Computed example of a mutant assay.
Amino acid sequence: MPGAVLSLGVVGCAAVLAVGLAAAGGAAVFSQRLAGAADAAALAAADAASGAATGSPCERAAQVAAASGASVDACELAGLVATVTVSAAFGRFPASASARAGPPP
């Protein structure tokens, strides 16, 4: 019987470790997707600011972010350079990412 209890403990620890690693991996993937959404939104805003795309820069950024499941928290323009911050929820936890796009200096 002591071997059964030990093996049950080992299996339980392995299961807890696997769930924890899966959650951490999911958070890392979500973080990268949110960063990609911020990059795309900043590029869309910079394109609209330069005239390469139609519409208001911040509205274009909001459209692109919404397509990725995120919302724009901040959109700032400095000439042709756009800085966009997007946010979304990972489960119950809020997350945000920022990106800047524009012509090279």
Rank of each mutant, 00 (worst) to 15 (best):
G3M: 10
L80I: 01
A97Q: 08
A42L: 09
V10H: 06
G3N: 09
A82L: 10
R92A: 15
T54G: 12
A44N: 02
Q63N: 05
G69L: 06
F30S: 08
A4T: 13
G102D: 09
A78I: 06
A41D: 04
P2H: 14
V5M: 15
A101L: 07
R33M: 01
Q32K: 07
A44C: 04
L8Y: 07
A97P: 11
A44S: 10
A97T: 06
A61W: 00
V64T: 05
A95W: 12
S31R: 15
A78V: 14
R60K: 08
V86T: 03
P57W: 00
S50T: 12
A65T: 01
A65M: 07
G26I: 01
C13I: 14
A28D: 08
A70H: 03
D73N: 10
M1F: 09
A37V: 02
A42I: 08
A28G: 13
C75P: 14
A45P: 04
A78N: 13
T85W: 06
V19C: 11
C58H: 03
G12M: 13
S56P: 09
S50I: 01
A49T: 02
A35V: 02
A97H: 04
L43S: 02
A88F: 03
M1N: 09
G25C: 09
F90G: 01
G55E: 00
G3C: 05
A82R: 05
P2N: 14
R100P: 01
G9Q: 08
G102R: 12
R92G: 10
G102V: 05
L34Q: 05
G79W: 01
D39Y: 07
A24I: 01
A41S: 10
A24V: 08
A95H: 11
G26Y: 05
A28P: 09
A40C: 03
G26P: 08
A4V: 15
A99C: 13
G102W: 00
A53G: 00
L77T: 04
S56V: 05
T85P: 04
R100G: 01
G9V: 03
C13K: 10
A67S: 08
L6P: 12
P103V: 11
S7W: 15
A62T: 04
A67C: 00
A61R: 05
S96A: 11
A78F: 00
S50C: 12
L21N: 02
A99Y: 06
A18M: 10
G26H: 10
R100K: 05
G36F: 00
A15V: 11
A70F: 01
A23S: 10
P103K: 02
C13P: 08
G12D: 03
A95V: 04
A95L: 14
A28S: 14
P105I: 01
A18S: 14
R60C: 07
A53W: 08
S98Y: 00
A4M: 15
A74P: 03
R33N: 06
M1K: 11
V11C: 12
R100E: 07
P104V: 12
A48N: 02
